[in-house]
Simulated scan of single mutants.
Amino acid sequence: MAEQETVWLTRDAFEKLSNELDHLKTHGRPEVAAKIAAAREEGDLSENGGYHAARDEQGQMEGRIAQLEQMLRQAKVGEVPENPNEVAVGTLVTIAYFDDEDDTEKFLLGSREMLGLDDDIETHVFSPQSPLGGAVLGAAKGDKVSYEAPNGKTIDVTIVDVAPFKG
């Protein structure tokens, strides 16, 4: 059996996902069940568009419930570091390549689930288990770190900025 991957979340992201799961189980399921029951009362199910739509909605919702349950089982919640300049799960990190402050990259250290629906979908996300994520985790603004890229090359970067993620 494959090892389950840790899902890194901020406390806020964990709570949002937990609340979504609770809402789906307590409100979503009964609402969809009522739609299915109402559509059944209309008669012939083979040509009942409302019934089939409600069943599709139910399947999608049950898939999301299963996804959330698995994600929350595998979640590790990152705590806010004492030093606000320290890279931790849930921080936006700006790095510079080759000591060139003009060649920078900004990313979220954590998991894509930390991003809300309203967040910029262009935000890059690196897991703490990734080579870059592992190298910067615990480093502070101004630190130089190295990591091995998937192609085997060693890459040096400087931490230019660290900011809390307001997801």
Rank of each mutant, 00 (worst) to 15 (best):
A135T: 13
G133T: 12
D161M: 05
G78N: 05
P81A: 06
D120L: 06
R112K: 14
I95W: 14
A13L: 01
V7Q: 01
D103I: 01
S46Q: 13
K144A: 13
H124Q: 12
T158D: 14
A140R: 15
T154K: 13
E42W: 13
E79N: 10
G63I: 05
E31H: 00
T10A: 05
I36R: 00
R64M: 09
G28E: 05
A66E: 10
I95R: 10
R11S: 07
D156C: 06
L21T: 10
E41I: 07
D120T: 12
D44C: 08
M71V: 10
S111G: 03
A163P: 00
V87R: 00
L132A: 08
R11Y: 02
R11H: 06
E31Q: 05
I121H: 03
A139S: 10
A34Y: 07
Q4A: 11
Y51W: 09
T10G: 07
M1R: 05
K153H: 12
T154M: 04
Q67T: 15
D56P: 07
A13Q: 02
S127K: 00
V157K: 03
G134V: 14
H124C: 08
D44L: 03
L132N: 06
E105H: 07
H27G: 04
I121D: 14
A38N: 04
R112A: 12
A2H: 02
A96M: 11
D56E: 13
D143P: 02
A37W: 10
P84E: 14
L117G: 11
D56W: 09
Y97C: 01
I159P: 03
K25C: 13
K153S: 13
L21M: 05
I36W: 09
G43Y: 09
K144I: 14
G50A: 08
D118N: 04
G50L: 08
L92W: 00
T6V: 06
K106S: 12
D156W: 06
Q4T: 09
V93K: 00
P131Y: 14
D118K: 02
G142A: 06
D56Y: 15
D119P: 01
P81S: 01
H52M: 08
E148W: 15
G110I: 07
L9C: 04
G63N: 13
V125N: 06
G90I: 07
A37G: 01
K25R: 15
R73A: 08
G43V: 12
F14S: 02
A33S: 11
G152N: 04
A53E: 02
V80F: 09
A149K: 10
S130T: 13
L21I: 09
F165R: 05
Q70L: 10
K153M: 14
D56N: 14
E3V: 08
Q60C: 07
V93W: 00
E15Q: 15
H27F: 07
Q70C: 06
D100N: 15
P150Y: 12
A37H: 09
K166W: 03
E15D: 11
E113V: 04
R29S: 09
F165T: 04
L108E: 05
S18C: 00
H23G: 08
K144F: 04
